[in-house]
Amino acid sequence: MATVKFKYKGEEKEVDISKIKKVWRVGKMISFTYDEGGGKTGRGAVSEKDAPKELLQMLEKQ
Rank of each mutant, 00 (worst) to 15 (best):
residue 1 M to R: 03
residue 1 M to H: 12
residue 1 M to C: 13
residue 1 M to G: 15
residue 1 M to S: 14
residue 2 A to L: 13
residue 2 A to S: 06
residue 2 A to D: 06
residue 2 A to V: 14
residue 2 A to F: 03
residue 3 T to I: 07
residue 3 T to W: 01
residue 3 T to Q: 03
residue 4 V to R: 00
residue 4 V to I: 09
residue 4 V to M: 01
residue 4 V to A: 01
residue 5 K to A: 02
residue 5 K to D: 01
residue 5 K to L: 02
residue 5 K to H: 04
residue 5 K to N: 02
residue 5 K to T: 02
residue 5 K to G: 01
residue 5 K to I: 03
residue 5 K to W: 01
residue 5 K to P: 01
residue 6 F to N: 01
residue 6 F to V: 05
residue 6 F to Q: 01
residue 6 F to P: 02
residue 6 F to S: 04
residue 6 F to E: 01
residue 7 K to P: 13
residue 7 K to Y: 13
residue 7 K to F: 10
residue 8 Y to P: 03
residue 8 Y to N: 04
residue 8 Y to V: 11
residue 8 Y to A: 03
residue 8 Y to L: 03
residue 8 Y to G: 02
residue 8 Y to H: 14
residue 8 Y to F: 08
residue 9 K to E: 09
residue 9 K to Q: 15
residue 9 K to G: 08
residue 9 K to D: 14
residue 9 K to R: 06
residue 9 K to F: 09
residue 10 G to C: 06
residue 10 G to I: 01
residue 10 G to Q: 02
residue 10 G to M: 02
residue 10 G to N: 05
residue 10 G to P: 00
residue 10 G to V: 01
residue 11 E to Y: 04
residue 11 E to M: 04
residue 11 E to V: 04
residue 11 E to G: 07
residue 11 E to A: 09
residue 11 E to S: 04
residue 11 E to K: 04
residue 11 E to Q: 05
residue 12 E to L: 13
residue 12 E to K: 05
residue 12 E to A: 11
residue 12 E to R: 04
residue 13 K to G: 02
residue 13 K to V: 05
residue 13 K to I: 11
residue 13 K to R: 10
residue 13 K to Y: 10
residue 14 E to A: 04
residue 14 E to Q: 05
residue 14 E to H: 04
residue 14 E to S: 11
residue 14 E to K: 03
residue 14 E to P: 00
residue 14 E to V: 06
residue 15 V to Q: 01
residue 15 V to P: 00
residue 15 V to A: 03
residue 15 V to C: 04
residue 15 V to S: 02
residue 15 V to N: 00
residue 15 V to G: 01
residue 16 D to M: 09
residue 16 D to P: 08
residue 16 D to G: 08
residue 16 D to Q: 08
residue 16 D to Y: 10
residue 17 I to H: 02
residue 17 I to V: 11
residue 17 I to K: 02
residue 17 I to S: 03
residue 17 I to E: 02
residue 17 I to L: 11
residue 18 S to P: 09
residue 18 S to H: 10
residue 18 S to Y: 13
residue 18 S to N: 11
residue 18 S to T: 06
residue 18 S to R: 09
residue 19 K to N: 12
residue 19 K to Q: 14
residue 19 K to H: 15
residue 19 K to A: 12
residue 19 K to W: 08
residue 19 K to D: 12
residue 19 K to Y: 12
residue 19 K to T: 09
residue 19 K to F: 15
residue 19 K to C: 08
residue 19 K to E: 10
residue 20 I to P: 00
residue 20 I to C: 03
residue 20 I to Q: 00
residue 20 I to R: 00
residue 20 I to N: 00
residue 21 K to C: 15
residue 21 K to G: 10
residue 21 K to F: 13
residue 21 K to A: 15
residue 21 K to T: 13
residue 21 K to E: 12
residue 21 K to S: 12
residue 21 K to P: 02
residue 22 K to G: 14
residue 22 K to C: 15
residue 22 K to W: 13
residue 22 K to Y: 15
residue 23 V to F: 05
residue 23 V to S: 13
residue 23 V to N: 02
residue 23 V to I: 11
residue 23 V to G: 04
residue 23 V to H: 03
residue 23 V to E: 01
residue 24 W to P: 00
residue 24 W to C: 15
residue 24 W to T: 14
residue 24 W to Q: 12
residue 25 R to G: 14
residue 25 R to M: 10
residue 25 R to V: 12
residue 25 R to N: 13
residue 25 R to S: 13
residue 25 R to I: 12
residue 25 R to F: 09
residue 25 R to Q: 14
residue 25 R to Y: 10
residue 25 R to P: 14
residue 25 R to W: 15
residue 26 V to N: 15
residue 26 V to E: 14
residue 26 V to Y: 12
residue 26 V to T: 14
residue 27 G to S: 13
residue 27 G to P: 13
residue 27 G to W: 04
residue 27 G to M: 10
residue 27 G to K: 14
residue 27 G to F: 04
residue 27 G to H: 12
residue 27 G to A: 06
residue 28 K to F: 05
residue 28 K to P: 13
residue 28 K to W: 04
residue 28 K to Y: 08
residue 28 K to E: 15
residue 28 K to Q: 10
residue 28 K to S: 09
residue 28 K to R: 12
residue 29 M to Y: 11
residue 29 M to C: 15
residue 29 M to T: 13
residue 29 M to P: 02
residue 30 I to Y: 08
residue 30 I to G: 00
residue 30 I to D: 00
residue 30 I to T: 03
residue 30 I to L: 13
residue 30 I to N: 01
residue 30 I to K: 00
residue 30 I to A: 03
residue 31 S to E: 15
residue 31 S to G: 11
residue 31 S to V: 10
residue 31 S to Q: 11
residue 31 S to I: 06
residue 31 S to R: 06
residue 32 F to P: 00
residue 32 F to G: 01
residue 32 F to A: 02
residue 32 F to C: 03
residue 33 T to L: 07
residue 33 T to R: 05
residue 33 T to F: 12
residue 33 T to W: 12
residue 34 Y to N: 01
residue 34 Y to L: 01
residue 34 Y to H: 07
residue 34 Y to G: 00
residue 34 Y to F: 05
residue 34 Y to T: 01
residue 34 Y to Q: 00
residue 34 Y to M: 01
residue 34 Y to D: 00
residue 35 D to L: 06
residue 35 D to C: 14
residue 35 D to N: 04
residue 35 D to T: 08
residue 35 D to S: 09
residue 35 D to P: 08
residue 35 D to M: 10
residue 36 E to Q: 13
residue 36 E to M: 09
residue 36 E to N: 07
residue 36 E to A: 10
residue 36 E to V: 07
residue 36 E to S: 04
residue 36 E to C: 09
residue 37 G to W: 08
residue 37 G to E: 07
residue 37 G to R: 07
residue 37 G to D: 05
residue 37 G to Y: 07
residue 37 G to S: 11
residue 37 G to A: 09
residue 38 G to R: 06
residue 38 G to F: 06
residue 38 G to K: 13
residue 38 G to P: 11
residue 38 G to T: 14
residue 38 G to S: 12
residue 39 G to P: 07
residue 39 G to S: 10
residue 39 G to V: 09
residue 39 G to Q: 06
residue 39 G to L: 13
residue 39 G to I: 13
residue 39 G to Y: 10
residue 40 K to P: 12
residue 40 K to D: 12
residue 40 K to C: 13
residue 40 K to E: 12
residue 40 K to I: 15
residue 40 K to S: 15
residue 40 K to T: 12
residue 41 T to C: 15
residue 41 T to H: 14
residue 41 T to W: 12
residue 41 T to I: 12
residue 41 T to S: 12
residue 42 G to T: 04
residue 42 G to F: 08
residue 42 G to Y: 07
residue 43 R to M: 08
residue 43 R to G: 09
residue 43 R to S: 04
residue 43 R to L: 15
residue 43 R to A: 07
residue 43 R to Y: 09
residue 44 G to K: 00
residue 44 G to S: 02
residue 44 G to L: 01
residue 44 G to M: 01
residue 44 G to V: 03
residue 45 A to W: 03
residue 45 A to Y: 10
residue 45 A to K: 07
residue 45 A to R: 08
residue 45 A to N: 09
residue 45 A to D: 15
residue 45 A to P: 01
residue 46 V to Y: 01
residue 46 V to G: 01
residue 46 V to S: 04
residue 46 V to Q: 02
residue 46 V to C: 07
residue 46 V to T: 09
residue 47 S to G: 12
residue 47 S to D: 13
residue 47 S to P: 13
residue 47 S to H: 05
residue 47 S to Y: 08
residue 47 S to R: 14
residue 47 S to V: 06
residue 47 S to F: 05
residue 48 E to M: 04
residue 48 E to K: 05
residue 48 E to I: 05
residue 48 E to R: 04
residue 48 E to H: 05
residue 48 E to G: 09
residue 48 E to C: 14
residue 49 K to T: 11
residue 49 K to I: 15
residue 49 K to C: 15
residue 50 D to P: 03
residue 50 D to K: 11
residue 50 D to N: 07
residue 50 D to F: 12
residue 50 D to G: 09
residue 50 D to H: 06
residue 50 D to Q: 10
residue 50 D to A: 09
residue 50 D to E: 08
residue 50 D to M: 09
residue 50 D to T: 10
residue 51 A to K: 02
residue 51 A to C: 06
residue 51 A to H: 02
residue 52 P to N: 04
residue 52 P to F: 02
residue 52 P to K: 02
residue 52 P to L: 04
residue 52 P to I: 13
residue 52 P to C: 06
residue 52 P to T: 06
residue 53 K to H: 11
residue 53 K to C: 15
residue 53 K to P: 09
residue 53 K to W: 11
residue 53 K to I: 11
residue 53 K to M: 13
residue 53 K to E: 15
residue 54 E to Q: 07
residue 54 E to T: 06
residue 54 E to P: 04
residue 54 E to M: 04
residue 54 E to H: 07
residue 54 E to S: 04
residue 55 L to Q: 01
residue 55 L to V: 08
residue 55 L to K: 00
residue 55 L to G: 00
residue 55 L to C: 02
residue 55 L to H: 00
residue 55 L to S: 00
residue 56 L to M: 08
residue 56 L to F: 07
residue 56 L to V: 12
residue 56 L to E: 11
residue 56 L to R: 09
residue 56 L to N: 06
residue 56 L to D: 04
residue 56 L to G: 07
residue 56 L to Q: 09
residue 57 Q to H: 13
residue 57 Q to T: 14
residue 57 Q to R: 04
residue 57 Q to I: 14
residue 57 Q to A: 12
residue 57 Q to N: 10
residue 58 M to K: 05
residue 58 M to Q: 07
residue 58 M to T: 05
residue 58 M to H: 09
residue 58 M to N: 05
residue 58 M to L: 13
residue 58 M to D: 03
residue 58 M to V: 12
residue 58 M to P: 02
residue 59 L to N: 07
residue 59 L to A: 13
residue 59 L to V: 08
residue 59 L to Q: 14
residue 59 L to Y: 10
residue 60 E to G: 08
residue 60 E to P: 15
residue 60 E to K: 07
residue 60 E to H: 13
residue 60 E to L: 07
residue 61 K to F: 13
residue 61 K to W: 12
residue 61 K to Q: 10
residue 61 K to I: 13
residue 61 K to T: 11
residue 61 K to R: 05
residue 61 K to Y: 06
residue 61 K to V: 10
residue 62 Q to I: 09
residue 62 Q to N: 05
residue 62 Q to P: 10
residue 62 Q to H: 15
residue 62 Q to T: 10
residue 62 Q to Y: 03
residue 62 Q to A: 11
residue 62 Q to C: 15
